[in-house]
């Protein structure tokens, strides 16, 4: 019986991760937990002081937690769509070695996505458990809210790696973080409802795929319906994932088999 090729690539990720898991995992969990403590507990007191506030009767901490879960999943997905890919194409060049074996470029893309799925699930689970300990979310609801968050993270990983694989210089990296990842993180309904933005900006925020992921995650965490029909939110995130996989199949091939 033969092992699907993407699974062989996944296994390679797991093997090399033994050497790097501490740094990458601790960072990916610590950041949202710090935000949760500072914003949820600190800032939350101010927000909750106003009973007429936009969060309604849901406390700020409970409202923020799913936003952070989805946004940090996106951030982890963006990291997994960037660093391993640049390592493969430019820094260590392991992708160039891999395609000399029966592994095809698209297997490298899929293998990395599978790896990102596992990693984001682990990171999200740790975050949910910590948040439950904070009393920010009931554990069962938190676990239920994991899947749209993970799906969102993997979709971002797919789209980003499809583009990053073509990069021939590292200078885009800083820009990618500054102009894509951080604004998404801040303005996708993570820390405050997009209704708080001026109407035009709110419309833009609603067009961001992360907002849809946040809405789904929050709906499950709070047990409330999302802003629009859940099919629409889910459709946007799935479309992002499918587009990332389809485009990646082409761009990985173009880069690795010139």
């Amino acid at each position: 019986m033969t092992t699907p090729i993407a699974l062989r690539v996944l296994e390679g990720h797991a093997r090399s991760y033994r050497h790097t898991w501490r740094g990458t995992t601790i960072g990916a969990v610590a950041t949202p937990v710090l935000f949760l403590a500072a914003m949820g507990l600190g800032l939350g007191q101010l927000v909750d002081a106003d009973p007429e506030g936009p969060m309604g009767d849901v406390g700020y901490l409970a409202w923020l937690t799913p936003g952070l879960l989805a946004a940090s999943a996106m951030q982890a997905g963006a990291a997994d769509g960037t660093f391993p890919v640049l390592g493969g194409t430019r820094w260590v060049k392991t992708y160039h070695t891999a395609v000399a074996s029966p592994v095809r470029p698209r297997d490298l893309h899929l293998g990395n996505l599978l790896w990102a799925t596992i990693r984001i699930t682990v990171i999200g689970t740790v975050f949910v458990v910590v948040a439950a300990l904070f009393g920010a979310v009931p554990l069962s609801r938190g676990v239920l809210a994991l899947w749209p968050a993970v799906l969102t993270g993997v979709a971002f990983c797919a789209v980003l790696s499809a583009g990053v694989v073509l990069l021939v210089r590292d200078q885009f990296l800083a820009g990618l973080n500054r102009f894509v990842v951080v604004p998404l993180f801040l303005f996708s309904g993570t820390f405050f409802p997009v209704e708080q933005l001026p109407a035009a900006a709110a419309a833009v925020a609603r067009a961001l795929p992360l907002w849809h992921g946040v809405e789904l995650t929050r709906a499950l965490a709070l047990g409330q319906p999302p802003a629009f029909a859940w099919q629409l939110h889910l459709g946007v995130v799935v479309a992002l994932l499918v587009a990332g996989i389809a485009i990646g199949a082409r761009t990985f091939d173009r880069r690795l088999r010139p």
């Binding site: 390679g12 060049k93 029966p102």
Partner: peptide, 19 residues
């Protein structure tokens, strides 16, 4: 294109699994 952080055997093992 060797993974510098991995051991010699790990580099070979990962590549071997590709086959």
């Amino acid at each position: 294109a060797l993974d510098q952080e991995l051991t010699v055997a790990e580099n070979l093992a990962i590549y071997g699994r590709y086959f």
